[in-house]
Design a protein around this nucleic acid. Structure first.
Lengths: 326, 326
DNA sequence: CTGAAAGCGCTTACAG
DNA sequence: CTGAAAGCGCTTACAG
């Protein structure tokens, strides 16, 4: 039915070995022979079976990615960066989310053991970092994409959380704001500590509320702060969802943004340009993080030595209506 | 190095055939023998090589998905639905976007010919529908997820665009709106015609502007309509991005939403609950579309006969502040 | 420059 | 109930 290397060999009057040599452009093949083989390959429309090649070579030319829920607002950018890079290298990308508890973790580890892929890209594996580390120790190439401030023993890509926090503070300071309210993510995350330190290093404040990375959390935090009679002229939110919640709470309370209170977020998710007013935020280069991580993994698979030092990408302040320039 | 079926066979004192039988739970294996083999499998931590199994069986237990840019606002939901379903069936999911022009299309078709996967899920393959159709004719199982109103010759999953448009119209009518402005997507799309027909069947209007599925397009359309002095008391946008642009244009023009003008969108993307005011919209069950399409493909791969009739999932009106109940 | 043969790690008739 | 052997479609020493 389907055309195999044997068909090509027969048709071209050579051995399978020679066809294989042509396929993999090894030296030491007569130019005429090679041309003839290539012609047969074309007319027959022959494409080597990836399964058979993988078995014979012991590598699948496929990498896997393990992600948090794909509905997170910045996942699309990261994923696109990864897919583009992986595709361009001629690799396939296998996607796992482990979204369904223990059963799906088993499915995933099974695929690892089954050698279904050559390397692994991981994004914020909240509960599986130990498992991943163990896999890495057993020889699976792994690269982590992380905005949570983990510090694994394998290569990773991160952003300048501290500098990002500082840039938000400088921006507010320049605009004349001196009494900021901080609404952070969970204190357990390294990125939360870094963003806070970067910010307070420039613009110290006693008004710090620990929240979660959700819109509801941001709304709640600001409602509470207002109810408690706290006096603040700006909000620095640890991500854009928190900031969106803050915007909503302020609007509901009749505070004007940015006249009464300026708001700065973190991430620059697609929604940030559609809030009212559009959100000033510290941009994380999500697509570039995906590209960089995929590039590292592919380099590692190609045998190039890559260090274990995290690659740190710069954040960038994006100024919009919620906190205009000073 | 890695443990193979031969290691298990040797250790258990049986043939590879018997180990294979146990692995695939065929009948006709002595209970005691089976138990012993299973024990050896456990202690050795043996997992069959997916590549070798695939080669021997001629199927890879992997499906592929070909998607538009992953940054589209509803891709996360669809993808999550697909991944969950595919993982639960013990299949792997290979992701392709063909985002980089001809080269990436070649990469993709190469993987098809290489039999890297058993079946294909496609989402809105704007320029590749012919290619996909040809692949389907040559025997590749394909299922389409579509909100653009294509009508392929293979199974597909769609939503009730016409009923969705009608529900938007009924909602506005009940709220006392009689002069709606329609901002549609490109007229070439089947879904655009259906949404328009559904809407105007209930609430006829002469104010129809053809746009694109973007925020900028929605903003522009409403700005033009206002500048032209059109008089309307509501906007029905063909997707939520258009609606978000309309909200912005109305706000910038000093029109109050919903008091002066009510706005209804389509899709219910995550952003819809964060606009100001939050968007009333016709919800498409994106995750369920992903689950359904994946389920169809898996059923087909399992040998169950599935018809070529499109599976049509119901839309649902979600009422929020931009167009409250009447 | 080229080919016969073994091997990658499984499954599947076939025979007993 | 069980095993020897062939086969899936490639690659890779090895020999010439």
């Amino acid at each position: 039915m389907r055309v195999t290397i044997a068909d090509v060999a027969r048709e071209a009057g050579v051995s399978k070995t020679t066809v294989s040599r042509v396929l993999n452009t090894k030296a030491d093949v007569d130019a005429g022979t090679a041309a003839r083989v290539r012609e047969v390959i074309d007319t027959l429309g022959y494409v080597p079976s990836s399964g058979a090649v993988g078995l014979a070579r012991g590598r699948s030319r496929t990498v896997a990615m393990l992600t948090p829920p794909l509905t997170w607002p910045w996942m699309g950018e990261v994923l696109q960066g990864v897919v583009d890079t992986v595709e361009a290298a001629g690799y396939g990308l296998l996607l796992f989310t482990c979204n369904r508890g223990a059963e799906s973790v088993d499915h995933f580890t099974g695929q690892v053991s089954a050698r279904a892929f050559d390397g692994l890209l991981v994004i914020e594996p909240e509960n599986t970092l130990d498992t991943i580390t163990a896999m890495h120790r057993r020889g699976l190439p792994v690269v982590l994409i992380d905005d949570r401030g983990h510090h694994p023993e394998f290569p990773s890509v991160a952003t300048t959380n501290r500098a990002g926090g500082a840039s938000a503070a400088r921006h507010l300071l320049t605009a004349g704001r001196t009494r900021p309210l901080l609404v952070t993510g969970p204190a357990a995350f390294g990125c939360v500590r870094e963003r806070t330190e970067g910010f307070t290093g420039v613009l110290p404040t006693g008004l710090v509320v620990e929240g979660e990375f959700t819109e509801a959390s941001g709304r709640h935090a600001v409602e509470q702060a207002l109810a408690a009679g706290m006096s603040f002229d700006s909000v620095f939110a640890h991500n854009d969802l928190i900031a969106a919640g803050a915007l909503r709470a302020l609007r509901d309370a009749g505070r004007r943004v940015p006249e009464d209170i300026a708001v700065v977020g973190f991430d620059d998710i697609p929604m940030a340009r559609h809030t009212a007013p559009p959100l000033t935020t510290v941009r994380q280069p999500m697509r570039q993080m995906g590209e960089t991580a995929a590039g590292l993994l592919l380099a590692r698979l190609a045998g190039e030595p890559i260090g274990d030092e995290p690659v740190v990408l710069p954040t960038e302040l994006v100024v919009r209506g919620s906190a205009p320039g000073g």
